[in-house]
């Protein structure tokens, strides 16, 4: 996966899910961005600095580190291969696939909303 990460879109999608009461997973911008970066770098190693390039505007270093440990490593979505270096696992790729479907759902819902808005 080498496609660019659209941070603004990811934020929009996360806000949409938050508005539905889903604050974790698809509704968490940090989770979304970390997973996107890991998926983008697959099968290479993702450095902590690669993730922070995208997440710095939303979260401090500590909270990203904590999320990596308490969510991604704990649930087996990534494997720590060296200090500050991670590789996404099959389970992580599954989660990334799910994240893509949440983006598709958001786009579909938004498009439908716009169509309804244009109906007199």
């Amino acid at each position: 996966m080498s496609e660019d990460i659209d941070v603004e879109l990811e934020q929009e999608v996360a806000e949409f899910y938050q508005s539905l009461g889903i604050n974790q997973g698809p509704g968490d911008i940090q989770y979304r961005l970390i997973l996107k970066v890991l998926e983008k770098n697959d099968p290479d190693i993702t450095k902590f600095s690669d993730i922070r390039k995208y997440t710095d505007q939303f979260a401090d270093r500590g909270s990203i580190g904590s999320k990596m440990k308490t969510v991604f490593q704990l649930e087996g979505l990534v494997k720590k291969v060296k200090r500050g270096g991670y590789v996404i696992t099959d389970k992580g790729l599954m989660a990334a696939g799910f994240l893509r479907t949440t983006t598709t759902f958001y786009k579909k819902t938004k498009r439908m909303g716009e169509i309804i808005e244009r109906m007199p």
């Binding site: 909303g113 169509i115 309804i116």
Partner: peptide, 22 residues
């Protein structure tokens, strides 16, 4: 096509008489 699109992406916010009926 437009009707089909509306049925595929069903939403509670859609007021049936205002969108589908016309």
């Amino acid at each position: 096509g437009l009707l089909l699109l509306m049925f595929i992406t069903r939403s509670m916010t859609i007021s049936i008489h205002r969108t589908v009926l016309p």
